[in-house]
Design a protein around this nucleic acid. Sequence first.
DNA 1: ATCCCGAGGG
DNA 2: CCCTCTGGAT
Length: 217
Amino acid sequence: MSITRKRATKKQRAIEILIRLKREYPNATCSLNYETPVQLLVATILSAQCTDERVNKVTPDLFSRFPDAAALAGADREELETLIRSTGFYRNKAKNIQGATDKIIREFGGKIPQQMEKILTLPGVARKTANVVLAHGFGIIEGVTVDTHVKRLSQRLGLTEHKDPVRIERDLMSLLPQPEWENWSIRLIYHGRAVCKARKPACAACGLVDLCPSAQA
DNA sequence: ATCCCGAGGG
DNA sequence: CCCTCTGGAT
């Protein structure tokens, strides 16, 4: 009777965690508001270091004024900055929104490419943003979205030892079946917001305590 | 490793 | 005051 038979593997633990989180957050989905893939891309760029709730406060005015890639690319930079200012990093975000939409117009015929390598050439877009747009905009599961919540919870749950989001993503891709990758991210984000908070995790209210090496008594 | 950057909570 | 929020580029 070996140790490995008694103790659950990381993979088994990951699956059990996902089962429980699906039960707890059955209808979890992307919480950004958008009408088109381009709007989803813009909302996701805006969501860097900012709550989705705040992004959803600026996008109604933003998308009303500049509804598509052409309008965004041609927008007055200062007006755009003013519209997105409250999301923080507004100069970088405005520059990236216009750089990305301009490239979509010029090089991709006005539509967001559905290949990971091509999306990654857009300014201000790395794997986190690309995974969100591919999964929720086009239904293509290319990787695991690793944001601040997915990173923190995956580390606390002992499923990765890495700090680099790309390495964390690789670890998670090896632990979970591909069709569940985005389900994993969405549930961890919900759980991170509601229970496993960065500052003061509510372990007493967490349904994963028996599976979590970081759980506090 | 550092910078970008506002808003809200403790 | 300090920390955190669906990061990415230099």
